[in-house]
Design a protein around this nucleic acid. Sequence first.
DNA 1: AACCTGTGCAACCGCCGCGAT
DNA 2: GATCGCGGCGGTTGCACAGGT
Length: 290
Amino acid sequence: MDAHVRGLSSGSGNHIQQRDEEVICGVRKGAWTVEEDSLLMNYVAIHGEGRWNTVARSAGLKRTGKSCRLRWLNYLRPDVRRGNISLQEQLMILELHSRWGNRWSKIAQYLPGRTDNEIKNYWRTRVQKQAKQLKCDVNSKQFKDTMRYVWMPRLLERIQAKSHSNSTGQRTSSTTTTFTDSASNHADITTSQVYEMIESGSDPKYMPEISGASSDSLGAQVSSGSDLTDCYSLHGGSDYVDNTQNGSVGEQGFEQQHSNNWLGGGDSLESLWNEENIWFLQQQLYDDEV
DNA sequence: AACCTGTGCAACCGCCGCGAT
DNA sequence: GATCGCGGCGGTTGCACAGGT
């Protein structure tokens, strides 16, 4: 269905993509080949990152330094994670974006293994698409309010619901998690809101006990970890039903989930968008008019 | 089966800041 | 102070693929 699945089925990321490569002035463009990846990985393994123009030349790659850097950071880096944005990560993205806007690299610092490119793509393909469907600007107050007062609380609810349903008690007791990485050094992250999210188990980076590929990690519980086939490919899956039941939709009786939760992924943002959000937006617009 | 459309992601582009000279 | 090269960042594009008609 999507590129995740494609990538999985190929077993080697996007190597299946055989776009037309062009060579202009001895510089290759387009999709990277397995051989190029191998050259770059070997070179970086020996010489380390940085000085990308030198890397490109010395590794025998007919690529620009920029291209090598991008390929390494977004794809080849060993700790890079792709696909399957978990609920916690979604929540983090929403919160941090509301705080910083399109500072993708800054946001990415708080989502270990996620690249700015992936977060940016996520925002564009999921969030902006929602705004477009609702015919409102993604930067409008209405949309931001909807995110903050509807979307994010419900994400939080679902995270908590999943946590409880898994009955391990790990997550809810994790509020004492300490921060020992880069995030703790960011003086501009001071609001309790973000910390609460993080501390409640938003990400493996902040949850040493659930880091890595542990199958019983929260990430795995929520979104099957790095399984690329999960989140956005479960059309009509059981998660969808669970969402409506666990979501505490409630207040205006908008229990009915719209059938156009197009991607249908139970843990995706899309499943949160229903008439309730539209209603909320309409109320906001109405209030503004009055 | 053929074509069309939507989707998601990798990669490129242009701009900017910074350090070296 | 001016210039250059480089790396980083955000915006944008191109394209493979899946699903629909």
